[in-house]
Computed example of a mutant assay.
Amino acid sequence: MSKEYQVYVLENAKERRYIGLSEDVDHRLGQHNNGESKWTAKHGPWKLIWTSSRLSLSEARKLENKMKRQKSGIGLQVIMDEYSGSSGS
C-alpha cells in the first residue's frame, strides 16, 4: 500500500502563511512549533488553518506547488475550497 500525504497551511499571529506536505500533519505542526524547521522557527508559533484530503505523494507535491504559486488571497482560497479535507479553524 502506498503512503498518503496531506498538504497543509499554517498561519502565525502576523497572518504569514506556510504551505507544506506531510504524512502526519499533527506531528509536522509540532516540529514547526518546536523550532525543528529552519524557516518556520523564526516566525512561529503556528496554527493549522487547513489540510487537504489524503493524496499520493505525486498529487500532494503538485497541489503544494500550485498553492505556493498563489501565495495568498483569493486564488489560494479557491484552491483550499476545492481540495479541502478539513480546517484548523
Score class of each variant (00 low, 15 high):
P45Y: 12
K66S: 10
R54N: 13
T51A: 07
Y18Q: 10
S37Q: 10
Y18K: 15
T51I: 11
K47V: 07
K42Q: 14
L21G: 06
H27E: 10
L21K: 14
Y18C: 06
G35F: 04
R54P: 12
D24P: 03
E36C: 04
L21T: 09
A41E: 12
W50N: 01
L63R: 00
K38P: 08
G35T: 03
K47P: 07
G20E: 08
G35V: 08
E59Q: 14
G30H: 12
S22Y: 13
G44M: 11
W39C: 10
K38W: 09
K47D: 14
E36N: 15
S58C: 06
K47G: 04
D26E: 12
E59G: 03
N34A: 11
K38N: 04
K42I: 02
L48W: 14
L29K: 11
L21E: 13
E23Y: 02
S58R: 07
A41P: 13
G44I: 08
G30Q: 15
N65Y: 15
R17Y: 09
H43V: 00
R17T: 11
I19S: 09
P45S: 08
S52D: 11
N33E: 08
T40W: 00
E23D: 03
T51K: 15
S37G: 08
I49S: 10
L57W: 09
E59K: 14
A41N: 14
W50P: 00
T51E: 15
S52R: 04
L21P: 05
L57R: 13
D24T: 02
E64H: 03
R54V: 12
I19V: 09
L63M: 06
H43F: 06
K42D: 06
T40D: 12
R17I: 04
H43G: 02
G30P: 03
W39R: 12
E64A: 00
D24S: 10
T40Y: 01
G44E: 15
G20D: 05
D26R: 13
S56H: 04
K62I: 05
E64L: 02
H32C: 03
E64W: 08
R61M: 02
E64G: 00
K38Y: 13
T40E: 09
S53C: 05
N34W: 13
N65Q: 14
L63V: 08
E23W: 00
E36I: 03
D26I: 05
E23H: 00
R54K: 10
N65T: 07
L29M: 10
R61L: 03
L48P: 09
A41H: 10
R61F: 02
V25P: 04
L57F: 13
L48F: 07
N34G: 05
